[in-house]
Design a protein around this nucleic acid. Sequence first.
DNA 1: CTGGATCCGGTTTGATACTG
DNA 2: CAGTATCAAACCGGATCCAG
Lengths: 144, 144
Amino acid sequence: MNQIDTPPRLYEWAGRKSAQPVDPALEGLVRDIIGAVADKWTMLILETLEAHGTMRFTELGHKVGEISQKMLTKTLRRMEADGLVTRKVHPVVPPHVDYTLTEMGRGLGAAFCSVWIWAETHHDEIEQARTAFAKRQGVAVVRT
Amino acid sequence: MNQIDTPPRLYEWAGRKSAQPVDPALEGLVRDIIGAVADKWTMLILETLEAHGTMRFTELGHKVGEISQKMLTKTLRRMEADGLVTRKVHPVVPPHVDYTLTEMGRGLGAAFCSVWIWAETHHDEIEQARTAFAKRQGVAVVRT
DNA sequence: CTGGATCCGGTTTGATACTG
DNA sequence: CAGTATCAAACCGGATCCAG
């Protein structure tokens, strides 16, 4: 391991490494996992599956809320690939597919739990902060 | 503007509400907060600021890693609006702006901590799951 | 009929160039 | 140094279409 500092991108903005001897492989992998998991739909689906247990595709979509089929499919695929959910297809007519959290998926759900609690605890403080920020900026109607 | 819904056919996919009497305002707000916070860059910036304390814009960009200026700016703005960081501008000739986590921001960082631990704990299991999934899928679905 | 794959249009992100 | 401006690329949502 010598001089692996080869800049992956030529532009000088990011990609600078700190001088810390962190294992780059593990670092990158953990970062990648965070990138895959720190996603709105992933969290929402995880939460829904945790709350209701095994669910079918359409039912899951309804319970999650405003999610498109495409994102539901895509997110579930990635979660399946990462070992967070198992996908079971019953070869019947009409099709029946159900999704269940794996042990690891439940673990992630538990880990995210504190974030949900944080959100519920601080929601009004966040709203105040948003209002104050909007006022400070003059015109920034962040209404969704 | 009445009656114009269902133009060809209001598609029945999402937007269904569960019959549960959950406070819709709070529900939507918490969901919105999760949507804002469950973001790759938000988590990464949060982690970096938590680890290194108050930092300047460029330094933060370097430490976070492969992030573009635009996303760094944008994410920091939203975090500021949500009250997660404070942005302090020193009116000096080379501009000097530094970012610091607020109390609430540190709270969110602590909440995310368990997710980082989860990622570090299960990284090899995830890798295995990914490999297994790729092998399972990769061979079968090769089409034209 | 359910699950999901595909095409199209709008939005978001990324990479570069430029400014105070 | 700390951003904006700008254009291309990737992504997301919605609708349609398809397979079992």
